[in-house]
């Protein structure tokens, strides 16, 4: 039962920090600088999560690099999201065969 209490606190804290700003912050931000920041932020977040972690995501630097290159080429060609994502996996899988 002790674990259940831990889980409850864990879930509660995680929910609160997500919910409070999203539910109750309703006014438009006036500052142009902040609005610009918010525009760029998702790209910064995504890149920070991708690099360097992508190179550790498969357990082998080589297969990860091949997968990354495949995804990059597919993304540069502006293929659909799911195609790019699967191209990365296909690259890893193919590189793993050698």
């Amino acid at each position: 039962m002790k674990t259940a209490v831990y889980i409850l606190v864990m879930a509660g804290a995680t929910y609160l920090i997500r919910m409070m700003p999203f539910a109750f912050f309703t006014k438009k931000i006036e500052s142009r600088f902040i609005r610009n920041m918010l525009y760029y932020m998702p790209y910064a977040v995504l890149t920070a999560m991708t690099i360097p972690s992508i190179f550790e995501s498969t357990g082998s630097l080589l297969t990860a690099a091949v997968g990354t290159a495949a995804a990059f080429i597919a993304a540069y060609a502006e293929l659909p999201l799911i195609v790019v994502a699967l191209a990365a996996a296909a690259g890893v899988f193919a590189a793993g065969l050698f």
């Binding site: 760029y40 995504l46 890149t47 991708t50 995804a71 990365a88 793993g96």
Partner: peptide, 28 residues
């Protein structure tokens, strides 16, 4: 191990086309 990279592939699919068109995104 092939599944492990899928999510990052998706991130790349979002970042790269936007960075291609917008210097600010590329810089960020």
């Amino acid at each position: 191990s092939a599944l492990g990279i899928v999510i990052y592939g998706m991130f790349i699919a979002i970042i790269v086309p936007a960075a291609k068109k917008n210097a600010g995104v590329l810089f960020a």
